[in-house]
Design a protein around this nucleic acid. Structure first.
Lengths: 222, 222
DNA sequence: AATCTATAAGCTGTATACAGATACAGAGTC
DNA sequence: GACTCTGTATCTGTATACAGCTTATAGATT
């Protein structure tokens, strides 16, 4: 098998690619919570045997996105309200650490990406496309991720993003107009912080908008 | 295979047990950094095939304790000084969150365990035994872990403990007398915090002693 | 008609054989 | 003597067959 490269990896690896594809399907609600994933079917789809596919699933299980029960199957986890609360509390705390723990230098490239994301977000107010909305959010996450300097913080930041992604996108799907403007506000703040090369401001701004996102989830769950 | 239960698990599972045994061997320096782990040999030792053993190794790889290179082998990772620094910076920040993010109620049982650990630590000044020192530290970690209420914080706290364990125990092995008294100080502070049922104090105390531990590592690495 | 049971279908978990990758040693060459 | 090439041993990666677990369903029994 030789799948197409999705993101920038140095060692392109079938298992990594498969894991990433399935992960995105979960995050972007193609596999909503409760969906049963069958190893045989997925292995056939990707043209590999069950062995490497199981390894991809193992990683997703470790990420906390799926759960497997012997004899039954592998299902996409649906987070309880308590779990979502805890994840968001944690994300708000981690956001503040971005600027505190020796962040990477913010570069012109970061600024360019942020500006292009802002343009794309503004275009969404004219013609909304949920897939494009997901993609902008996803790349926004990668941008922040790239600014984080502490390797441990990076990993945890990433993990919590993936864990909360599907819950957030579930809300976003149902309140498109509002979240669209929220996204513009978030990226606008981010551009300001990046233009002044201020990683601490990036973190504080992230904390703020994670909080707003959580408020929206709370509203949605009432 | 039917291995003996090591810690309290609900679903006892061969892969879990094997993972835990190998993990402890790495943390307790039985497999120091650079050691090559051979799948065939380990599978034979535990009386299972390579398949479940590989899954155990996979989990240790996600934990960041080992690295695998195709055709070469699986080696125990040795952290660079920068990596250790980042892990300790992160641990100090997470420690403060223990009391902040809805901790579990501290119970009489916690107090009893803390007191028994203190007794055991004090006994170490009379007759030092490195294995017992490791065990006390390990159970101390479990005690803190049990007080953390936020599930995400718990997982991250655990992961960073395992990642830094071998580096710390390497230092401890070479400065037994000093670390022995440090341990008593740490548990004494912990007992005080637990007696007043103050999770925030537990976290602050942890932050302090993680900092001291890091200072000792810095001294050792000069 | 209701209930209990046996059985079969479908899933994950495990063992094993084979393929691919890498390091090292030794023959061959300059 | 130094260098290069190649064969081989040994490791991880993958495919596949089989074992074990769970659930649903059909059929017998009350």
């Amino acid at each position: 098998m030789s799948l197409i490269q999705l993101e920038n990896h140095d060692d392109i690896n079938d298992v990594d690619v498969i894991q990433e594809i399935i992960r995105n399907r979960i995050c972007f609600l193609e596999y909503p919570a409760g969906t049963t994933l069958k190893e045989t079917a997925l292995a056939e789809e990707f043209g590999v045997s069950r062995t490497p596919l199981r390894e991809a699933l193992n990683r997703l299980r470790y990420l906390g996105l799926i759960e497997t029960r012997n004899g039954v199957g592998t299902v996409v986890v649906g987070l309880s309200y308590l779990q979502i609360t805890q994840i968001y509390e944690m994300r708000m705390e981690l956001a503040q650490l971005i600027g505190k723990l020796s962040p990477n230098k913010i570069t012109d490239e970061h600024e360019e990406i942020a500006l292009s994301l802002l343009t794309r977000a503004q275009r969404q107010t004219i013609e909304f496309d949920i897939q494009e909305y997901f993609a902008i959010n996803h790349q926004l996450h990668h941008l922040i991720y790239d600014i984080i300097g502490n390797a441990s913080l990076k990993e945890m930041w990433k993990q919590l993003y993936f864990q909360s992604a599907s819950s957030w996108y579930q809300v976003a799907k149902n309140t498109t107009e509002k979240v669209c403007h929220s996204l513009i506000d978030e990226i606008t703040d981010l551009v300001t912080a990046i233009k002044s090369r201020d990683a601490e401001a990036v973190g504080i701004s992230q904390r703020l908008h994670i909080k707003y996102g959580f408020e929206r989830i709370k509203l949605f769950n009432q």
